[in-house]
């Protein structure tokens, strides 16, 4: 349940923003989660509702947006979506680090972070 650690970091940041003058009422937080992270949106939403309880952002809504994975191959120069492992028996295809064109190992350029994108608020 690392989602709770992430939700706590998120709430700390947003509360700090809300409490810095002028005082603000936070309505919505837009969070982007990369495809290469293992942060589960459903669990994070639940943890957010728990972690915001009795804080100044208790009534705010968390919205989560997925960021698609992208990789770069240093062997053949490929840059773009990763190769997916379709028959891994997983619920959805698994993004891999195998280069879609030459088969060598690629490195991740997009989709490995978990970022607060925007905070929607009104000034009080």
């Amino acid at each position: 349940m690392h989602e709770l650690s992430i939700a706590s970091a998120l709430v700390d940041n947003v509360v700090k923003f809300a409490n810095s003058p002028p005082s603000k009422k936070v309505l919505k937080v837009l969070l982007q989660i990369g495809e290469f992270t293992c942060v589960e949106p459903e669990q994070l939403l639940f943890c957010y509702s728990v972690a915001t309880r009795e804080t100044s952002i208790e009534d705010s809504v968390l919205e989560i947006e997925q960021v698609a994975a992208e990789v770069r191959c240093l062997h053949c120069g490929y840059a773009g979506p990763p190769k997916y492992w379709d028959d891994a028996l997983a619920a959805k295809p698994v993004a891999t680090l195998e280069c879609p064109t030459c088969g060598n190992a690629t490195e991740v350029t997009h989709g490995h972070d978990c970022t607060i994108r925007t905070i929607r608020y009104i000034e009080q």
């Binding site: 970091a9 969070l31 970022t115 607060i116 608020y121």
Partner: peptide, 20 residues
């Protein structure tokens, strides 16, 4: 508590703040 505001009073701040 429900807060209702007219659209011009709503602000969006763009951040690029990583939680990791």
């Amino acid at each position: 508590i429900k807060i209702e505001a007219s659209p011009e009073e709503i602000y969006d701040i763009e951040l690029e703040h990583s939680l990791l």
